[in-house]
Design a binder for these strands. Structure first.
Lengths: 216, 216
DNA sequence: TAGATTGTTAATCGATTAACAATC
DNA sequence: TAGATTGTTAATCGATTAACAATC
């Protein structure tokens, strides 16, 4: 049985992983929860609590073995295994993600790009050629792709998601600004840049207002 | 005095805003918390609790006035006011964000791009020419820019953030995979795509493991 | 007035933090 | 052994959910 850990904890694990790997590469053998917490920006207790969910343990009086824990987290997060992904929506954002080399470090490889727009279909993006969305089914089924990335406008996203799921995709990274309705067992991660921008915008707004207040 | 609302609530406001604006444009005059909640994927009680933080009220028995509430949220989130931004790190992701038209709808305009790499400096990205990072100070100061976007590698991010803050930037959208150390009053929003990908990766991993288990 | 739906107070839930015994 | 640091139990905090009186 695989124990579920709380979502907030799960979100912090990649941060711990990154610092542990870095420390390991720099020749640091052990890191205390205090030190790791400093680097990630999380209290030491939180670090210990989070890591106590895992099978790999720390050593009292010494700390966590950087290499061992990094390796463990790598496996736990599945970063060591290759994961194919397809991307639908080859606009600016889609093309950028397809070209982003950083994802390779996390075991993800974008193997196909799709779009609806005839002007975009057939164009080259890095090593890939944008294909027609109508070909999605065939490609995904025979390539055994677990991940779908959606970078279409909001109107198209639901339809695309359903098509992806029909082809066996089980995890969706949704960059389009809308809620996807999916059945249980399908994992959706929303990456709503406009919503994030709104939060940023609110803070700028708030600062402006308080400046106005102070200058009165 | 400007009342602070809880962070989770603040993050949901842009979602409400989007649906309210859409409904307003479609000619729907009122939306109940039930209906709005459905569209955003949040329980009706949560919607009411969230919106009760705002000055704009709903009408018992009727619901929320879509146009009025959308307008209110637009002002509250500062989406109606133009916000200039500079972007440092004109790699694939940086160029994509610079070209992304969607941000305009949220009042953000990227007014300058900077990079360290001489091969990139001077190249054209949309209407803008990538400038040398050494020019950051002059440009930002005379343009009154409140927002900085960081799309550099992790090693450079802290230095870039400090330079931004010295020039008067007060809100940073950090796409680089690292923690930024900044003084109080500077708002930082991390958009760590690799960390998000790790969460996605974990779920794929988990599904694989449970499939293995079932097939035993 | 009856029905619908809000805003708010109180109850629940879950995550973070504090305290501390266990262990290297 | 003394000092450092873990893992865990209990206390706190804050957000979500439930219940319901107020109001259109």
């Amino acid at each position: 049985m695989i124990k579920d850990i709380p979502a907030p904890t799960l979100q912090r694990l990649p941060l711990y992983y990154r610092e542990l790997r870095l420390a390991s590469q720099n020749g640091t053998e052990f890191l205390s929860s205090q030190e790791l917490g400093n680097r990630v920006g999380v209290p030491a207790v939180q670090v210990r609590k989070d890591l106590s969910n895992l099978a790999e343990q720390g050593r009292p009086g010494v700390g966590y073995h950087t290499t061992r824990l990094a390796d463990y987290l790598e496996r736990y997060l599945g970063l060591n295994r290759d994961k194919r992904a397809v991307l639908v929506g080859a606009g600016n954002l889609g093309r950028a993600l397809a070209l982003f080399p950083g994802f390779g470090n996390y075991g993800m490889q974008i193997v196909a790009l799709f779009d609806k727009n005839p002007d975009v279909i057939g164009t080259q993006v890095g090593d890939l050629v944008v294909r027609s969305i109508t070909e999605l089914g065939n490609s995904v089924k025979c390539l055994n792709v677990p991940i779908g990335i959606i970078t279409t406008p909001a109107e198209a996203a639901q339809t695309v998601a359903e098509a992806m799921i029909r082809c066996g995709i089980r995890a969706i990274w949704n960059f389009s600004p809308c809620k996807l309705e999916v059945e249980d067992g399908i994992f959706v991660r929303n990456e709503d840049l406009a919503a994030q921008l709104s939060v940023l915008s609110h803070h700028v707004q708030k600062m402006r207002l308080s400046e106005d207040e102070n200058s009165r």
